[in-house]
Write a protein that binds this DNA or RNA. Sequence first.
DNA 1: ATCAGTTACTATGAATTTAGTAGTAAGTCA
DNA 2: TGACTTACTACTAAATTCATAGTAACTGAT
Lengths: 156, 156
Amino acid sequence: MNLVVSHYQKDIDMKNLSNQPCLIARSLALVGDAWSMLIMRDAHTGLTRFDEFRKSLQIAPTMLTARLSALTEDGLLEKRRYSDRPPRDEYVLTEAGRDFLPVLFAIGAWGRKHRGGGDVTRFFDAETGTEIDPVTIDRETGAPVGTRAIRTVLPG
Amino acid sequence: MNLVVSHYQKDIDMKNLSNQPCLIARSLALVGDAWSMLIMRDAHTGLTRFDEFRKSLQIAPTMLTARLSALTEDGLLEKRRYSDRPPRDEYVLTEAGRDFLPVLFAIGAWGRKHRGGGDVTRFFDAETGTEIDPVTIDRETGAPVGTRAIRTVLPG
DNA sequence: ATCAGTTACTATGAATTTAGTAGTAAGTCA
DNA sequence: TGACTTACTACTAAATTCATAGTAACTGAT
């Protein structure tokens, strides 16, 4: 009985982030936890295999299975067979997964400014050799986000 | 006893994201969960009071207390008394909190591209009236993140 | 003076999620 | 044959999250 009620609520629940008009909430429904973000980070550094993620993150295998499945289901990763015998799959970034990189860099830029210091991992442009300093701007005006007033328009 | 052990582990744990060299991990130690991100989103839309957040997010009060305390402790929000009688506090963004906006917009931009459709909340530049289209670029080269090869340099 | 209403919480216990360890399936390699 | 690899699943314990109810300290209306 409880299960029925709970299941019903889950389907129509206003809190279900995926159905909200706010795109931030919708995105967070998929990657709104640290493990998923860190898996995306590692995928961007080239990791593809279960054990690579497990060793890098020191994550429990049950959690890793759950997150990789969810990210695959949600279209950020793709499961690809790299060996038939023994059967082995790896997880590679999809286009949506690759598009997630700016989010990671924006988070990293915030961390550099507000949680920097000590030994940190740094990123350089491979062509110019300069350190990457990510800024999020509005493509239209070129103004960095946060430097101008914003008008929010709700749907409906 | 359990408390002592658990506290000790928390301080030296290699998994403690706050002490990692990766700035993404360090940041996620503070805001690596959906509630914290959504609170930051709401704070940016002008919400400051406990009940405003609670009603907007439909979050359990225990959770909200915990998140607001953590965000305050971590320097993204500041607790400010707005009434002495009765004693009432509100939570306002600090500079670090305000600097978090680009992260939210980067997440929203990803959502618009990959989870868009239906009714969505939109943002416009108050001056020009054009819709904001966030892009994260490297300040030095001007190249959007993800369009060029990156060299990662680990510390040590 | 009393009583409903507001705001910002805390208390409590149940439900759910996460964590950690061990074990398994399907192989390969020496 | 036996050790090793890889990608998991099973299982239990621990921790977190959730929902609901209740409390503290008022204000403002009758």
